[in-house]
Design a protein around this nucleic acid. Structure first.
Ligand SMILES: [Mn+2]
Ligand SMILES: [Mn+2]
Ligand SMILES: [Zn+2]
Ligand SMILES: [Zn+2]
Lengths: 152, 152
DNA sequence: CCGAGATCGATAGTCATTCTCATTTTTGGA
DNA sequence: TCCAAAAATGAGAATGACTATCGATCTCGG
């Protein structure tokens, strides 16, 4: 494969990803870089068909396999909804903590963030739950399900 | 099919479900009643294999089909996680609003509720988001992902 | 430059879920 | 009660997102 960047990854992000991959004995290859660049350029969680359309040089089988590798390394997050396809986005520790608007009509997933106060209050309430249930919390997920402005 | 109830559905709930189904031109048949009873007895979101194991008289193909019917009628909710199987539970307006603990180890999904104050604060924050984004909110979903006490 | 090992990608396989259709059950008149 | 039309059932086939396979290609240290 010979792939030229669509959008160049900033040096720091590149190094972070290289490092995450190295920790799971994986290389930051051209194909993997192209996937990250597509997700970065997309600006919202993307299905694999969307990724393949955004960069037609990518092979489907490699995209599936490499997104699994990238997820295991903590570079991307897999988002599963009621839609037929899973979606991927850059992991939160490479971007920032946020939540999702999920359109029940078209399936689109977009990001939103709570203001700090609301997020803090939520965290506090969730810590109580965790303590009360003996559940070891790794993450919380908050989605708004509804109809996006495009779908009216 | 000849199915005797495992756990009897209370009259009021039975009438609500009958009504919901009638609104989508569907009947509350024995097979559908058995599904609802299994979910009720299960006490937590169940996969279809779990439902079939709980009531071995149920046919797999009918269970799949009827859970789709029950979901369309608003009787049950389909919960999709990273696990292989989707899960079903009674819809919130037949029970109460709540959220989910999702075990990333065994896949189990259990319920929890925020205290009223935390839920109110969350609702308020989400209304602001909806207003700011032009998103028409149908529901919010809050999950805690982590490791359940059974899995340590 | 070389060779071991990693990665690639076309293709085949898997399996949760959906579809098909012949059979059974239900329903609402006659 | 009897009948026919409509709905529901369930065994099995089909679908399709995703994963596994494996020979070709690339990468990197020596
Ligand atoms: Mn996101
Ligand atoms: Mn629940
Ligand atoms: Zn939409
Ligand atoms: Zn568990």
């Amino acid at each position: 494969m010979s792939i030229e960047p669509l959008a160049t990854i900033e040096t720091e992000l590149d190094e972070q990803i290289t490092d995450l991959l190295r920790r799971s004995d994986q290389r930051f290859t051209k194909g993997r870089r192209a996937l990250v660049e597509a997700l970065l350029a997309g600006g919202q969680p993307m299905t694999i068909p969307q990724v393949l359309e955004a960069d037609t040089r990518l092979a489907q089988s490699s995209a599936y396999r490499n997104l699994v590798v990238l997820e295991a390394a903590g570079v991307v997050t897999r988002i599963v909804t009621n839609d037929d396809f899973a979606r991927y986005e850059l992991a939160e520790h490479l971007t920032h903590h946020h939540h999702h608007l999920i359109c029940s009509s078209c399936g689109d997933v977009t990001d939103f963030a709570l203001d700090d106060q609301a997020e803090d209050e939520l965290d506090e309430a969730l810590h109580k739950i965790a303590a009360a249930t003996g559940f070891t919390v790794e993450a919380h997920r908050l989605d708004l399900v509804g109809v996006c402005s495009d779908c009216d």
